[in-house]
C-alpha cells in the first residue's frame, strides 16, 4: 500500500525544486544570450583570431 497523503512539506519541496529548476534554466538562457552577444560583437578578424594567417582569406 502506498502512502498518498500529501503534507504541506511536500508542497514546499515541490515549490523549491520547481523554483530551482526555473532559476537554472534562466541562468542557462542568460549565459547563452551573453555568448551570442559577445560573439556577435567580434569582427571577422576577432572571430578568426585563433586561425593561422591566410586561413580566413581562403
Amino acid at each position: 500500500m502506498t502512502i498518498r497523503a500529501e503534507h504541506e512539506m511536500h508542497r514546499r519541496r515541490l515549490g523549491r525544486n520547481v523554483g530551482l529548476g526555473v532559476t537554472l534554466a534562466a541562468f542557462i538562457l542568460v549565459v547563452f544570450g551573453l555568448t551570442v552577444a559577445k560573439v556577435s560583437q567580434l569582427g571577422e578578424r576577432g572571430a578568426f583570431a585563433h586561425a593561422p594567417p591566410g586561413v580566413v582569406a581562403r
Binding site: M9, R12, G15, R16, V18, G19, L20
Partner: peptide, 8 residues
C-alpha cells in the same frame, strides 16, 4: 521546511 520564497 523552507520554500523557494524563503530563500529568495
Amino acid at each position: 521546511e523552507a520554500g523557494f520564497g524563503d530563500y529568495f
